[in-house]
Design a protein around this nucleic acid. Structure first.
Length: 801
DNA sequence: CACTCATTCCTTTTT
DNA sequence: GGAATGAGTG
């Protein structure tokens, strides 16, 4: 990266020793200068937070602190990468920063656990544990609930997981949780909690929450581990401190110490209580509100001056956020010009809203702003689709910030599941996914028998498969066809072959002394993609999506290669001795299995926000949550309606209103120059148009700062959206889109007709049903056959056929 | 055992 | 509007 350019361009600084203080305000400089003892930096939006953090790290190093004694923690990989990049820019890429640890909470915990799990007395957790993401968690939870003969209808896996997650964030293990439950529902959840943890450990897994909880437990209960960590990291810096939960607070406190050993807690927490938006995930805003209670004698520095936005935007944001009660007073102000008023437009429905947003963005473009300097924010992901359609139809380039999307794709999940089984054959969840994908004759009936054996033995399923492969069905006491047995044997061989290839000291099956060769991991990934049959499976399909899938699999190999190339054992907090790393000493190179673990860790811990890349020349679409920490010249916020922002949940949980207001505050303060906020009078949820009320937050903005136009009564362009335009009265909205006969674009639809779908493109109708919920089966030229509900599918008639 | 078709449910936000 | 699940057929 061009760190030098960036450095000179944004700061005007040089590499001179005094450079770290150049261009800083008095308050910023104080925060940089403070090195010993607890420090809390209350950094308002656009107050130069990142700059302060990076300068502070550079200053510490300049003061003679060895870089490997510094630990900087963030919440996202992107934030970590950015911070590292900027620090390196200040210090130079060379040895000056070697050993500096900049990472996320979750990644740090994963590493610490791998390093010490077996010595720290964490029952059942093996160092090669797999990290279970939310999809894995849900799958395992479903199995667990069914295993207890409970119904997933009464005990929805997602809500049970949410409850257990809350308990975990509060550091209650299954026993502690059980002790607090007195009613039937609570006791049942406690039972599920215990069973879930057992299943998780049996599968050699740890979920996201476990990473934090177990690390907190380990640091608390194991003095040796605690000492080792404290010895290594003497200076602790935590970004977005307002988002820390109880477990993270405990980890931070234990790493910082309480000063009783004669060393002051050198913890620097940076954050803004007004931007705390992860309360639902267990983040505890009291951590930052009561920082001085936890760390007596802490210095507190408020950065209230905003360098990002116009005065209008800052004044509006400040007026709104002042209504919150749970906050630390901090006046927002800016020396920037007043700028334009905020645009607020009331629209007729979501399609009209999308059109309004499009035209507004075009106007900004006409004023000379680049697409990449514009963004659209929304409260829920579901709101993005209509905007996407509009931008796509208009030919406006856009990207949706969905970093996890790539790894959620079926083909990638499959390939990753194979890799996870290679890394850890006990991972039953991943094994379930791949054992018969692609179909290889190991069907449900066969698996059911083998699962029973595994359950009886209390062993992972793969062990049973392996025994079957070597000893035959009779040895397990089950009856299986020879065909099934052969299929299993072949599968086990395949997996074991890969494992052998990845074993320490082995290189693609052959023993290779000496260094780890870059490319070995990518080669393993490539082999898995090919030999698993996944490649052949997607190659067999000839549709465009199959081609896309093949391309994605190829991309996975590339990503593994890139990972290898950028992997730096010296930067790893626990793999190598930091002093040795700092001295540039060569260490034992990692084996392929170690690399595989590290790679899977990386793959599992990606977040949506990680994928935001403003370098592309496109409008960025994202949730308000993902927007935190970013800035754009022009921002459009859609869906400013009651039950959306603030979210409907507030009706039941009034306490959450303040967090919704903070979310709105975060959105507003991302805008540098121009801001548009829209609401729609009618909006469709699950296909039903509902009457909407403008958000109370709009009314909280000082009227003189806003230019409001009400277009909700106006007519707008007919055409594509005509079918589902709701009736203005709302009462008969459903009737409008439900003609007795199947129609598209107002014309009768019959077999053989040629139609266009806004997303799927051109297709021919194969069959059609009439009446309530009329559907048409359409063969699309590009995406294959789809069955669409005519009421919702915005079909355009090309030829009646 | 694999594939196709129909029904159900869905909706916060994410490491 | 669509994904995920479940029933039924070849």
């Amino acid at each position: 990266m061009h760190t030098e350019v960036e450095l000179a361009g944004t700061d005007g600084t040089t590499r001179d020793d005094g450079g770290v203080f150049d261009g800083l305000t008095e308050a910023q400089a104080r925060a940089v200068r403070h090195t010993e003892g607890p420090l809390l930096v209350l950094a308002g939006p656009g107050s130069g937070k990142t700059r302060v953090i990076t300068r502070r790290v550079a200053h510490l190093v300049r003061c003679g602190i060895p870089p490997w004694q510094i630990l900087a923690l963030t919440f996202t990989n992107k934030a970590a990468a950015e911070m590292r990049q900027r620090v390196l820019g200040l210090l130079g890429e060379g040895a000056a920063a070697r050993g500096l640890t900049v990472t996320t909470f979750h990644a740090l915990c994963a590493r610490l656990l791998r390093r010490w799990a077996d010595v720290a007395g964490l029952p059942g957790l093996k160092p090669d544990f797999a990290i279970f993401d939310s999809a894995d968690q849900a799958a395992l939870m479903k199995k667990t609930i069914e295993g207890l003969n409970l119904s997933t209808g009464n005990w929805p896996p997602r809500s049970v997981l949410a409850r257990i997650g809350e308990a975990k964030n509060d550091l209650q293990d299954a026993e502690a949780f059980a002790a607090r439950q007195h009613d039937f529902a609570g006791r049942t959840v406690a039972k599920i909690y215990r069973a879930y943890q057992n299943a998780l450990r049996a599968a050699g897994g740890a979920d996201f929450d476990d990473l934090l909880v177990l690390t907190a437990k380990m640091l608390r209960e194991n003095a040796a581990v605690r000492r080792a960590c404290r010895e290594r990291w003497q200076y602790l810096l935590i970004d977005e401190y307002q988002d820390t939960n109880r477990a993270q607070f405990v980890i931070a406190s234990l790493l910082a110490g309480d000063g009783r050993d004669g060393r002051p807690p050198n913890i620097c927490a940076v954050g803004d209580p007004d931007q705390s938006i992860y309360g639902w995930r267990g983040a505890d805003i009291s951590n930052i509100l009561d920082f001085e209670k936890a760390f007596p004698g802490a210095e507190v520095i408020a950065l209230g001056e905003n360098f990002r936005s116009t005065r209008t935007i800052i004044d509006a944001a400040d007026a709104m956020i002042r209504r919150n009660t749970r906050r630390r007073h901090k006046t927002l102000f800016t020396g920037n010009p007043r700028g334009e008023r905020i645009d607020a437009v009331s629209c007729r429905d979501e399609h009209h809203e999308a059109r309004v947003v499009l035209e507004w963005l075009r106007a900004r473009r006409a004023e000379g702003l680049a697409w990449k300097d514009m963004a659209v924010f929304y409260r829920t992901n579901a709101l993005s689709r209509v905007v996407e359609d509009e931008l796509r139809d208009a030919g406006v380039p856009y990207v949706v910030a969905r970093g996890t999307a790539y790894f959620q794709r079926e083909e990638i999940k499959n390939a990753v599941a194979y890799l996870r089984v290679v890394a850890n054959p006990a991972d039953d969840v991943s094994l379930d996914r791949v054992v018969n994908t692609p179909a290889r004759g190991i069907g449900d009936a066969t698996l059911e028998k083998l699962r029973t054996v595994a359950a009886d033995r209390g062993a992972p399923l793969f062990d049973v498969l392996r025994d079957l492969a070597s000893g035959g069905a009779a040895s397990l006491g089950v009856a299986l066809t020879a065909r099934a047995q052969n299929a299993v044997t072949k599968f086990v061989r395949t997996i074991d072959n890969w494992r052998d290839a990845a074993k320490p000291g082995a290189f693609m099956g052959a023993d290779t002394p000496g260094d780890y060769e870059t490319g070995a991991l990518a080669e393993l990934v490539e082999r898995v993609v090919r030999e698993s049959g996944l490649e052949a499976m997607y190659r067999a399909g000839r549709t465009e999506t199959d081609e896309e899938r093949l391309a994605n699999l190829a991309e996975l190999v590339t990503s593994a290669r890139e990972f290898e190339e950028t992997f730096d054992p010296g930067a790893d907090p626990v793999l190598t001795d930091p002093r040795a790393a700092a001295a540039g000493e060569r260490r034992t190179p990692p084996d392929v299995l170690t690399m595989l673990h590290a790679y899977l860790e990386r793959v599992t811990l990606v977040a949506d926000a990680d994928s935001v890349d403003p370098a592309q020349g496109a409008v960025t679409l994202m949730t308000l949550h993902a927007a935190k920490g970013l800035e754009f010249g022009a921002v459009a916020m859609v869906g400013l309606e009651e039950r959306i922002l603030p979210h409907a949940r507030v009706a039941e949980m009034p306490d959450e209103l303040e967090e919704e207001r903070r979310l709105c505050f975060v959105g507003i303060t991302r805008a540098m120059k121009r801001l548009l906020m829209t609401d729609a009078r009618y909006r469709s949820f699950r296909g039903v148009a509902e009457r909407q009320i403008a958000s109370r937050f709009l009314a909280e903005l000082p009227p003189d700062l806003v230019r409001h136009t009400d277009q909700s009564g106006e007519e707008f362009g007919a055409g594509v959206g005509a079918l589902e335009r709701p009736d203005p009265t709302g009462a008969s909205a459903r009737a409008v889109g439900k003609p007795a006969r199947a129609r598209a674009g107002g014309r009768a639809l019959a077999e053989g007709a040629l139609v266009r779908h806004p997303q799927f493109g051109v297709g021919r109708v194969e069959s059609v049903t009439t009446g309530q919920g009329a559907r048409a089966r359409i063969r699309f030229r590009d995406v294959g056959v789809k069955t669409l509900v005519l009421e919702y599918a915005r079909l355009e008639m090309i030829d009646e056929g």
